[in-house]
Design a protein around this nucleic acid. Sequence first.
RNA 1: CGGGGCGUAGCGCAGCUUGGCUAGCGCGCUUGGUUCGGGACCAAGAGGUCGCGGGUUCAAAUCCCGCCGCCCCGACCA
Length: 577
Amino acid sequence: MKWNQTHIPTLKESPAEAEIPSHKLMLRAGLMRKLAGGIYTFLPLGLRAYEKVERIVREEMNRAGAIEIRMPALQPKELWQRGPRWDAAQRVMFAASPADGSKFAPGGELVLGPTHEEVITSLAADEIHSYRQLPKNFYQIQTKFRNEIRPRFGLMRAKEFVMKDGYSFDATEDGAVKSYEAMRAAYQRVFERCGFGTQQLKCVWADSGVMGGKYSQEFMVTAECGENEIAFCEKCSYVANVEKAQSKLARLEDGEAPANVGKFPTPGVKTIEDLTKPPFLVAADRQVKTLIFIADSKPVLVLMRGDHPLNEVKLAAATGAIEFRAAREDEIVPLMGARPGSLGAVGKSGVPIYADEALRGRFNMVTGANEDGFHLRGVCVERDIKVTKWADLRSVAAGEPCPECAAPLRIQRAIELGHIFILGTKYSEKLGANYLDEKGQSHPCVMGCYGIGVTRTLAAVIECFNDKDGIVWPMAVAPFHVCISLLDPAKEASAKIAQEIHDALEREGVEVILDDRDERPGFKFKDADLIGFPIRVTIGEKSLAKGGVEVKQRATGEMKLLPPAEAVKEIVAAVRR
RNA sequence: CGGGGCGUAGCGCAGCUUGGCUAGCGCGCUUGGUUCGGGACCAAGAGGUCGCGGGUUCAAAUCCCGCCGCCCCGACCA
């Protein structure tokens, strides 16, 4: 490929819209252009790099025994309404209505697919009848559409993006776990092949969210711009999304024996911190924090240790509510009889009370008296409060002891590239994906689902591999392996050598672009560094006078002067390594 | 949707506070010339409904109102 035959519009400055390195570089290196917020055109180099990632994903899926299919992006709304999560799903879906506002053609209303559990399960309901057909694992690589509340960082969170989504069907729970484990191993290989090292790549325990199902793990790559936080142990292998992470807290001493509950005046006290000050001097970890939430339009009480932050994802998981928010004061007062600052759960009934595990067994605690300006002391949580459900509700903090080995936990931001779930029978039951076992009895298939953000992975590669001069592509994902910087395209001798090296490399299957532009050397070097081709071959009068061409590694800066034939050999070896 | 910021040539910006004369600068682009191993130089050009609509005014990029778009922080997720 010759540079002049393609289109690589590099920019000297990054557009103001880009904030993070990968977004800036994708625009500057001419990989993509924005059409609208969260919607991008892939230019030739961006497309090539994208296709590399896609190929790695496809190869590893096939190797793991998954079967590629292609489902429609346009889907009947009615199918979603029959599925188990229509209420939660509507928020992110685009409806595909006729643009002129006219009625839908026969067949009903359509939506653009944000994911495909409903479609695949309905397909499985029609196609799978017998245990003899199981297990099956279908996948596709396809454009998804989501009405992201806030598109962000270029390809990191886009309204239109490419996802590899896969769905396994098994007869038994054990089988589903096997399918899941096979995918986990395949995902590990995909991301390793994309260039991520064990230091930055983490497979973490995660919350299942609206997807439902028993357990799930996310593949994360640590990065400053990541939208997730992961907690991991410095000593052992424990690592989890903070939405799920736990820690082993030291037991606190509450004194000899539980005292009786006593009310005392606390005029003007509004916060946990207020109570820690004179004249009260109640440590935050001796207080019970009482929070009121509206979960699916019903109030719930949430009890936390005073110094612990609530983790809303864990609360959502504990309550099973789809939508919840903090209650307003005008909702709290009629319910509790007091305003925030003096709230407490002692003696409270008729409202679900969720308590964090860190409060279990505690006594001689202080909490609001449900009377403005008063608190209670001597509270024994299990004796005095009718807890509906104990649950892990708090966010772990950096430095807390690892739940497995008690070494300090660290917290880092990370980008989620893949997510794998065991779904169970949530979808198959609802949509009738059943099979007959050996005895002729009908059972719902046990499902798993597995996603990789393919376009996001591309962005993450750039986010992780760049320096002050531009992108530093891992060989496996680079749009071209080699750039030949021909410094004097007008000089016949140089041009001939460049063409010969180019052709020889192509014959060996090396992807090479020949910079034949009529530009100054410095300009070509800057462009090559910005785009980040792993290997650059420089052909100019200087090198030729010394009897060869220069072969330079982008990542290390290492440079060798070699005769053309040697250079070709060296490069072929490096590319195949 | 809540909070913050921005919208002036393809890109990056100045001008707006305190309204006024032909709307400016750098990069990029075109033409000619000189250059040619780390984003060259000289000269001559092309390119703008100052996001859109309304208002105030003799006069609006500049002041006021409304809308739209983009970016950042939060709730959602591959």
